[in-house]
Design a protein around this nucleic acid. Structure first.
Lengths: 134, 134
DNA sequence: TTTCTATTTAGAATCATTCTAAAATACGCC
DNA sequence: GGCGTATTTTAGAATGATTCTAAATAGAAA
């Protein structure tokens, strides 16, 4: 899903966030172009379009986006950095161990059957599949 | 699985690690008693039995255990700390969101069917189920 | 023992992230 | 358009987990 500049503005306002130039630029990357970026990735990309943006602003913005439900912070074993996922629909992940790329796996691609004690109420299932392409 | 002091010695030697007093104490906790401890947890427990042990030694030891394949480092969204898992058999995890406890889920309790492109070779699947007990 | 190498250690260094407080900016209101 | 106020941005300091460094110590083999 790609959002126009105007749609990003609208999303930010809906979330009670002022659509500042910094935020619009960050969102252009995080919500549209990036694939599971870290803060470092975001900063590097945004630096080009918005020289002088501060690292604190990137952190502030991803936190605000997280609170607004526009992105989700995730953390995997293979990296010590938080990455941000703009896909807010339920889905899983595939890590290509050769390239380090993280791809989305649609729920339809995964059938799970849990056999848990009756008193367990499941709120969320997260799955990371690691592998290679032959 | 609980290992005797002697068995821990043997395991360490087999891994090419000298069974020092510090390592034996750390293993007693990490391999036997602890449940997915963080380095902080380990340090706190070991401090009692081995006053003056250095934090660096705890880090050194868990890294050596990891290299030896005796533990696995894991990282979850809900914490920024690495935790160590002494269960080296394939298994999954359940996070009790009320207590913060992390429990093992046996592979038998989970049936998965993946529908992935043919050229994908799966090496590992990690699953975290979050929920509550009613 | 002696010697050699692995291990431990305190403390400094690093890296990601958060905090702080001041300056800049957006936006509603006149 | 200009004003006032709450929000946002910012540089830099602070924090917290982890790694590094270099010197002291302790296993193990001869």
């Amino acid at each position: 899903m790609t959002l126009s500049s105007e749609e990003i503005r609208t999303e930010l306002k809906r979330a009670g966030m002022r659509p500042t130039a910094q935020r619009l630029t960050i969102c252009q990357y995080v919500l549209n172009q990036a694939n599971h970026p870290s803060v470092e990735d975001i900063k590097a990309w945004v630096d080009d379009k918005f020289p002088g943006i501060s690292l604190a602003t990137v952190y502030n913005t991803v936190h605000a986006l997280e609170t607004a439900g526009l992105v989700q912070a995730i953390r995997f074993d293979h990296s010590d950095k938080v990455i941000y996922d703009s896909n807010t629909e339920p889905h899983f992940h595939f890590l290509d161990e050769d390239s380090g790329t993280l791809l989305d796996i649609q729920p339809e691609q995964v059938q799970i059957n849990l056999n848990l004690p009756e008193d367990v109420l499941v709120n969320d299932i997260s799955i990371l599949i690691r592998g290679k392409r032959q």
